[in-house]
């Protein structure tokens, strides 16, 4: 039997599951509900200052990147659950997208 390379994706999936369960709910509440309803000051200056702070930037990066690994990992396996036998190309596309999002978020925060 061939050794699976799944441990790599499983590790990232696990980190994503934790971030999505612990951090994502409050972020959705703030950015998606409270701020749009005017309960929270979400001005450019304020958000820009938060993103420029090292800790703030790390929080944003974690909130964008890890859940990508969680969700794309699950959706890839869901294809199999729904009887779609996706090949290596689809697998590369799913995990490639997660990697791309991770790098893009870091790039946008750093430069």
């Amino acid at each position: 039997m061939k050794r699976s390379n799944e441990p790599v994706f499983w590790g990232l999936f696990g980190a994503g599951g934790m971030v999505a369960a612990l951090l994502t709910p409050v972020l959705i509440l703030i950015t998606g509900i409270l701020a749009p309803m005017g309960a929270v000051d979400f001005s450019f200056a304020r958000v820009d200052a938060f993103a420029s702070n090292i800790l703030g930037g790390l929080i944003i990066w974690a909130a964008v990147s890890f859940p990508l690994w969680l969700s794309l990992h699950r959706l890839y396996h869901c294809l199999h659950d729904f009887g779609v036998h996706a090949g290596n190309g689809v697998k590369a596309a799913f995990y490639g997208a997660a990697a791309l999002g991770t790098v893009a978020a870091a790039y946008l925060l750093l430069f």
């Binding site: 039997m1 050794r3 699976s4 799944e6 659950d81």
Partner: peptide, 14 residues
């Protein structure tokens, strides 16, 4: 370990 490490082993579980 070879059984556990395979795609058909622990990694086939969701």
């Amino acid at each position: 370990m070879a059984f556990l490490n395979a795609h058909e082993g622990a990694w086939g579980c969701t």
